[in-house]
């Protein structure tokens, strides 16, 4: 285990930022800590780095108890959201900082810095100052600076948060490649689910100071563990209804098989993704009749708002090619079925 956190809690002026959180990260893993702002993910990350002191709980880094070890001694690499590069130092001096304070030999420093400069594809930028770099370049220098003293774990706080969409895309691929080459245990905080799903091999989802789900990107996407995750990850429809018969719920013309252990009249919320709505022009089996109320072009897909009667609507997403071939038009009558859904009871 590279990082192990047990029952960690932290309060700020009466606000419970992190509560009773546990996690274990294996050596060499690449994990995302995903959550909305204020969910406590940055606080958790900063506690692991030693930049916040937990109120209770324990932190172990590579098997050693580190809860009360100063950030200076933890040997973690940390990349700040706004880079926190030393403004008055050149790129070279920024990367060399962690080596210089460890009193390493000048020749070793030189070698390591140039090695890292080529790794971040900024060879020849060593004499520039941070102000002379673009946002993406600064972020790469920040990563190199964190990696220079060969940390056991690398922590990144919203590493791409301040960059524009195109640069983020590039840096995602770059960080994946970097991780493959360096194999340092990496944990990064993000509020961007796309980033987490694409980059990480494992995702921890935080909400209200606690980890609500821990799984692979596919598990997170296909088997949400809570209301919050069903809504937070990916686009979704949701409808509120109740269990009408043992093992069955009805909403408009749709009938949903539900867990037979749910009691009758139990209020439930059913989530289903727009691309799990199977929509055709001709009736096939088990479909209900609907009318296209409005189509929205979204690039590679087209989203349809479907009127299914009784003033009820759902949205369906169809790949653009399929939609064009089917010739769907506003107002047209179509047939729809829901192929995958998740049911969560609503606590009253």
């Amino acid at each position: 285990m590279s990082i192990e956190v047990r029952n960690l809690s932290k309060r700020f002026n009466g606000f419970q930022a992190v509560k009773d959180t546990n996690l274990k990260l294996e050596s060499g893993s690449l994990t995302a800590l995903l959550g909305p702002s204020g969910s406590g993910k940055s606080t958790l990350l900063r506690m692991i780095a030693g930049l916040e002191v937990p109120d209770t709980g324990a932190i172990h880094l590579t098997g050693r108890e580190a809860t009360h070890v100063s950030a200076k001694e933890r040997n973690v690499g940390f990349v700040f959201q706004h880079y926190a590069l030393f403004k008055h130092m050149t790129v070279f001096e920024n990367i060399a900082f962690g080596l210089r304070v460890r009193k390493q030999k000048e020749s070793e420093i030189l070698e390591r810095v140039y090695e890292l400069l080529s790794l971040i594809q900024l060879t020849g930028y060593d004499k520039r100052f941070p102000a002379q770099l673009s946002g993406g370049q600064r972020q790469r220098v920040a990563v190199a600076r964190a990696l220079a003293p060969r940390p056991e774990v690398l922590l990144l706080d919203e590493p791409f948060g301040a960059l524009d969409a195109k640069v983020r895309e590039e840096l995602r691929e770059w960080i994946l490649k970097l991780h493959e080459e360096s194999h340092v245990t990496t944990l990064f905080v993000t509020h961007d689910q796309q980033e987490a799903l694409e980059v990480a091999s494992r995702i921890l989802i935080m909400n209200h100071g606690a980890i609500e789900q821990d799984g692979t990107p596919i598990e997170i996407f296909d088997k949400p563990a809570s209301h919050f995750i069903a809504q937070f990850v990916g686009e979704t429809n949701y409808i509120d209804t109740e269990v009408s018969e043992k093992g069955l719920a009805v909403w408009g013309p749709f009938r949903f098989p539900v867990n037979p252990t749910l009691p009758l009249k139990q209020k439930i919320r059913i989530y289903f993704r727009p691309n799990d709505v199977y929509m055709t022009a001709q009736f096939e089996t088990l479909q209900v009749r609907a009318r296209i109320a409005k189509a929205r072009f979204k690039g590679t897909i087209i989203e349809y708002k479907l009127d299914i009667g009784e003033d009820k609507h759902i949205s369906a997403q169809i790949p653009k090619g399929v939609a064009l071939a089917s010739g769907f038009k506003d107002g047209q009558e179509v047939y729809a079925a829901i192929t995958a859904f998740h049911v969560f009871p609503i606590e009253s």
């Binding site: 200076k72 690499g77 304070v101």
Partner: peptide
């Protein structure tokens, strides 16, 4: 943040002050 960065990189309090804070 810059001081925190210095600390995570292993600098002592005085090193942080002379190398990071004072120039800023």
């Amino acid at each position: 943040e810059e001081e925190e960065a210095g600390m995570v990189l292993g600098a002592s309090g005085w090193q942080i002050f002379w190398k990071v804070t004072l120039p800023n």
